[in-house]
């Protein structure tokens, strides 16, 4: 595969905004800045979404508020012949580790604790860096954003595990597994953080470069 590095130096890069142009974020078609909807695919056109950051923060806060009860309430209600047991997300993983399933416990902890928390931190950091500037280079921040967008969906794995287990383990009197209230909060938290990341306008990261009139301090 030939990778085409482009001629010219990065400081020659001109953004569409400076040329009074606007590109459709869905289909990448270029329009004059006065156009309000994309004539090709019908998507709404905005050169820079001024509401972007406030939407990011609103969805971020909802996602975070849902994440707290998701960790307090039980995720799974396991009923066997003699006992009924409620386990939270972390409690369930600890239990798995206790029985020797370290790999699975690690996946659960990673997908339902580290990924969501990392995502909250990363989205907040990106949103703050737009206003306050950042010592991390733009390329790094762009990469951070891509990672957040790619990996955020994987938090949903815990919900699917609960769904599979509660559908599968329905053995009448012998044993049954049912979803706990935490599952709904966790799903909401994942959905709202995904929406929050999608609301972020990544073009804002690069505007600072233009403002500085060059590659700037962080190249």
């Amino acid at each position: 595969m030939v990778c085409m590095e482009l001629t010219g130096k990065p400081q020659n890069v001109v953004s569409a905004k400076d040329l009074n142009l606007v590109a459709c974020t869905r289909c990448a078609k270029v329009w004059p800045v006065s156009a309000s909807t994309c004539g090709r695919c019908g998507h709404k056109l905005v050169s820079r979404d001024s509401q972007s950051l406030s939407r990011v923060w609103a969805l971020w806060v909802i996602g975070f508020m849902c994440y707290i009860p998701a960790n307090i309430f039980p995720m799974l209600k396991t009923r066997t012949l003699f006992q009924e047991e409620n386990s939270t997300i972390i409690g369930g993983a600890v239990e798995l580790a206790h029985y020797g399933n370290f790999g699975i416990a690690a996946i659960i902890i990673f997908a339902s604790v580290f990924i969501p928390l990392g995502k909250f931190w990363a989205v907040a950091y990106l949103a703050i860096s737009i206003k306050a500037g950042s010592r991390i280079s733009m390329n790094r921040r762009q990469m951070m954003y891509e990672v957040v967008e790619y990996i955020g969906r994987w938090s949903m794995i815990d919900i699917f595990v609960v769904a599979i287990m509660s559908a599968l383990v329905q053995l009448k009197t012998l044993a049954s597994i049912n979803p706990g209230p935490a599952s709904i909060f966790f799903a909401l938290s994942v959905i709202f953080t995904m929406l929050s990341a999608q609301a972020f306008d990544s073009r804002l990261i690069w505007d600072a470069q233009v403002k500085d009139g060059g590659p700037g301090r962080d190249e």
Binding site: C3, G8, K17, A23, C24, I205, W206, Q209
Partner: peptide, 25 residues
């Protein structure tokens, strides 16, 4: 226009198997 960082380039279509990349992001 790069949909991710808004950089503008003159369009030149790459041949099959090649890739055109945004030089900034």
């Amino acid at each position: 226009v790069c949909p991710q960082c808004d950089a503008v380039y003159h369009l030149k279509r790459p041949r099959v198997g090649e890739r055109a990349q945004c030089q900034r992001c």
